[in-house]
Simulated assay, not measured.
Amino acid sequence: MDIKLDDLTRSEVIELVGEHLYSMALSSPPESNHALNLEELKQPEITFWSVWEQDELVGCGALKELDGRHGEIKSMRTSSLHLRKGVAKRLLEYLIEEAKRRGYSRISLETGPMDTFGAALKLYEKFGFKRCKPFADYIEDPNSVYMTKEL
């Protein structure tokens, strides 16, 4: 698997981000949906990567700098054609290493508590993420789970 810095212009990447947005819209009420669209992912504080196996896009993810010591994982998505192949695990390892390289002392994320997010929650817990209070601009929300990992 190759993880590449991405500018969000390739049609495959645009389609995968669209799949992510659609899935999040189905899983979370609008006021609890924190998925970022293409333009939001292009903000200067966000770095976006795509994951490739040969010429096939298998996943994507982003890291948002909240401040010089704290990053947030955003838009982690495995292509529906490549679930259960280790894509998310490999990407999460990469994002954690990137956060360390940047000198962050903490990396956090927001996800959903519903069954559709069960595999993601297990993966984050396996990597040492712990549930926490809302961070950054998030607020208490029964449709959100907030997690953080000290680096």
Rank of each mutant, 00 (worst) to 15 (best):
T148P: 03
N143Y: 14
K64F: 10
L121I: 07
V51T: 12
Q43Y: 03
C60Q: 10
G61D: 06
S23K: 12
T47K: 14
K133R: 06
L8A: 09
Y146N: 00
D115G: 05
S11L: 11
H34G: 02
A88F: 03
G71A: 04
P44F: 01
K100F: 06
V17L: 14
T47Q: 07
G71E: 05
K74H: 12
K149T: 02
I14E: 09
I46H: 00
L16T: 08
L92M: 13
E19A: 10
F117E: 09
E93D: 15
E19N: 13
K130E: 13
E150Y: 06
T148N: 13
G59M: 04
Y138V: 10
N37E: 08
C60W: 11
V58A: 04
R90M: 07
S105I: 11
I14Q: 10
A88Q: 02
E31K: 10
R131H: 03
N33W: 07
P44E: 06
G61N: 07
C60F: 05
G18I: 11
R69Q: 15
D115Y: 02
E72N: 00
G61E: 04
I107A: 02
E19D: 15
F129C: 00
L41S: 11
G118Q: 14
R106V: 10
K4A: 14
K4L: 15
S108F: 06
K4N: 12
I46Q: 01
W52L: 05
E39V: 09
M76C: 07
M1D: 08
L81S: 12
L92W: 10
F127S: 01
